[in-house]
Protein backbone atom coordinates (compact mmCIF):
# COMPACT_ATOMS: atom_id res chain seq x y z
CA UNK A 1 0.00 0.00 0.00
CA UNK A 2 1.30 3.36 -0.93
CA UNK A 3 2.10 5.57 2.00
CA UNK A 4 1.20 9.21 2.17
CA UNK A 5 3.97 11.23 3.74
CA UNK A 6 3.30 14.80 4.67
CA UNK A 7 5.88 17.30 5.77
CA UNK A 8 4.48 20.07 7.90
CA UNK A 9 6.36 23.34 7.91
CA UNK A 10 5.88 26.97 7.10
CA UNK A 11 8.83 27.06 4.74
CA UNK A 12 11.68 27.59 7.15
CA UNK A 13 15.13 26.19 6.29
CA UNK A 14 14.66 23.24 8.64
CA UNK A 15 11.41 22.29 6.94
CA UNK A 16 13.02 22.34 3.51
CA UNK A 17 15.86 20.24 4.81
CA UNK A 18 13.36 17.71 6.15
CA UNK A 19 11.61 17.54 2.79
CA UNK A 20 14.91 16.92 1.04
CA UNK A 21 15.86 14.13 3.45
CA UNK A 22 12.46 12.47 3.17
CA UNK A 23 12.54 12.46 -0.62
CA UNK A 24 16.09 11.14 -0.59
CA UNK A 25 15.16 8.27 1.70
CA UNK A 26 12.06 7.43 -0.35
CA UNK A 27 14.06 7.42 -3.57
CA UNK A 28 17.09 5.54 -2.26
CA UNK A 29 15.02 2.75 -0.74
CA UNK A 30 12.36 2.52 -3.43
CA UNK A 31 9.62 3.15 -0.92
CA UNK A 32 6.14 3.37 -2.33
CA UNK A 33 5.12 6.74 -0.99
CA UNK A 34 3.78 10.08 -2.10
CA UNK A 35 5.28 13.14 -0.51
CA UNK A 36 3.22 16.20 0.19
CA UNK A 37 4.34 19.49 1.64
CA UNK A 38 1.89 21.17 3.96
CA UNK A 39 2.81 24.81 4.26
CA UNK A 40 -0.43 26.43 5.27
CA UNK A 41 -0.44 27.12 8.97
CA UNK A 42 -4.15 26.33 9.29
CA UNK A 43 -3.61 22.90 7.79
CA UNK A 44 -0.55 22.33 9.92
CA UNK A 45 -2.50 23.10 13.06
CA UNK A 46 -4.99 20.33 12.26
CA UNK A 47 -2.27 17.91 13.25
CA UNK A 48 -1.93 19.50 16.65
CA UNK A 49 1.80 19.97 16.41
CA UNK A 50 3.42 22.84 18.21
CA UNK A 51 6.84 22.63 16.66
CA UNK A 52 7.75 22.37 13.02
CA UNK A 53 9.05 20.66 10.97
CA UNK A 54 6.92 17.59 11.50
CA UNK A 55 6.58 14.41 9.48
CA UNK A 56 3.19 12.75 9.11
CA UNK A 57 2.83 9.23 7.72
CA UNK A 58 -0.69 8.13 6.83
CA UNK A 59 -2.12 10.91 8.98
CA UNK A 60 -0.08 9.99 12.02
CA UNK A 61 2.51 12.44 13.35
CA UNK A 62 5.75 10.52 13.71
CA UNK A 63 8.33 13.28 14.05
CA UNK A 64 7.93 16.80 15.28
CA UNK A 65 10.05 19.80 16.00
CA UNK A 66 13.28 18.67 14.40
CA UNK A 67 15.00 17.50 11.27
CA UNK A 68 14.96 13.70 11.30
CA UNK A 69 17.97 11.55 10.49
CA UNK A 70 17.94 9.21 7.51
CA UNK A 71 18.11 6.08 9.62
CA UNK A 72 15.10 6.94 11.71
CA UNK A 73 13.14 7.88 8.61
CA UNK A 74 13.93 4.49 7.10
CA UNK A 75 12.70 2.92 10.31
CA UNK A 76 9.34 4.74 10.31
CA UNK A 77 8.85 4.47 6.57
CA UNK A 78 9.68 0.79 6.21
CA UNK A 79 7.94 -0.31 9.40
Amino acid sequence: MSKIVKILGTGCPKCMQTTAIVSDVVKENNIDATIEKVEDIMDIMKYNVMATPAVVINEEVVIKGRVPSKSELIEVLMG
Binding site: G9, T10, G11, C12, K14, C15, I41, I44, M45, N48, V49, M50, A51, T52, G65
Partner: peptide, 18 residues
Protein backbone atom coordinates in the same frame (compact mmCIF):
# COMPACT_ATOMS: atom_id res chain seq x y z
CA UNK B 1 14.08 26.94 26.22
CA UNK B 2 12.23 26.85 22.92
CA UNK B 3 14.32 26.87 19.76
CA UNK B 4 15.82 29.86 18.06
CA UNK B 5 13.89 29.16 14.86
CA UNK B 6 11.12 31.72 14.59
CA UNK B 7 9.10 29.52 12.28
CA UNK B 8 8.00 27.47 15.26
CA UNK B 9 6.58 30.53 17.00
CA UNK B 10 3.28 30.46 15.15
CA UNK B 11 2.49 26.75 15.67
CA UNK B 12 3.31 27.25 19.34
CA UNK B 13 1.15 30.33 19.49
CA UNK B 14 -1.81 28.44 18.03
CA UNK B 15 -1.10 25.49 20.30
CA UNK B 16 -1.39 27.81 23.28
CA UNK B 17 -4.60 29.41 22.03
CA UNK B 18 -6.05 25.98 21.36
Amino acid sequence: VTPFCSCSSIPLFIGFVK
